[in-house]
Design a protein around this nucleic acid. Structure first.
Length: 261
DNA sequence: ATGGCAGGAAGGTCCTGA
């Protein structure tokens, strides 16, 4: 089983590139973030043509997550963590969807960015991370093989970013953000990409601005966290970097982990 | 040097992202 996560930055704008990636790399499970589409506008037919069935949790303009599965329909378990957005009365943002796929629990998340720091958006990020931790603990307690994947918007270590100095004031690498991420790992979850790249230096995001891609000014914020059973079966991980360099690319590259059957 | 660029929805510009 190959589990992938890809922040696509708009499903309408990215559709040709996204279909190309699915056809070329054929992940078993593809978790998408920032679909930026309402539920009605989700192009499920386009994926069905490629053999993928999907569930999705959309929202107008921003956020939005989806899970695509090759050859079967993901069985939805939960959507949303039950936490309102940072503005009064806006309700919950579409950042969480959870499903069962062939005996594996798959959680697809788009964790709040948290900029600017400090401020209400950063507070929201930390509150969201605690909600996530509580949900992950519930799944852990049920002893279900599980992968929590997505855009965590956390740079875990200084060697996960091209320049810690340049990013020092960013919400992605504040000590509070890193501590909250570390607590997930301390609970027992395995960071798949880190485990197979212990010296860091792996990027999953390059800004559109200031020639970041051309200069390789990237960092790692898209993660795959595994329960022990899946971590024991972890075979390989990768970042599909070449898809970041194509025309009309997302600012994130797809990240994947291969799990032995 | 607080820039730069992209997507979405609106609408001839603003908000958001990281």
């Amino acid at each position: 089983m190959k589990i992938a996560t890809f922040n696509i930055n708009g499903i309408k704008a990215r559709l040709p590139r996204l279909k190309e990636w699915l056809a070329e790399t054929r992940p078993t499970v593809a978790c998408l973030q920032e679909i930026k589409s309402q539920d009605d506008g989700f192009p499920a037919d386009e994926f069905a043509e490629l053999g993928y069935e999907a569930i999705w949790h959309g929202q107008k303009s921003f956020n939005g997550v989806a899970i695509l599965v090759d050859g079967s329909k993901p069985v939805e378990i939960k959507r949303g963590l039950g936490i309102d957005g940072p503005k009064d009365g806006e309700g919950e943002q579409s950042r969480y969807i959870e499903a069962d796929v062939d005996g594996v629990r798959v959680v697809c998340i788009y964790l709040p960015n948290g900029n600017p720091h400090p401020g209400p958006k950063f507070d929201y990020k930390l509150a969201w991370m605690e909600k996530l931790r509580a949900r992950m603990a519930e799944i852990w307690a049920e002893e279900i093989p599980c992968a929590v994947v997505g855009d965590f918007n956390v740079i875990p270590h200084d060697d996960d970013v091209w320049s810690p100095k340049a990013m020092a004031s960013d919400a992605l690498m504040q000590p509070e953000s890193r501590d909250a991420y570390s607590r997930l790992l301390a609970d027992g979850w395995t960071d798949a990409v880190r485990t197979l790249n212990p010296r860091g230096g792996v990027w999953t995001y390059w800004d559109y601005q200031a020639g970041a891609w051309q200069r390789d000014h990237g960092f790692r914020i898209d993660h795959i966290l595994l329960t022990p059973e899946l971590a024991d079966r972890l075979e390989a991980v990768g970042v599909d970097r070449d898809h970041r360099g194509r025309e009309k690319a997302s600012d994130h590259a797809p990240v994947w982990a291969r799990i032995r059957d």
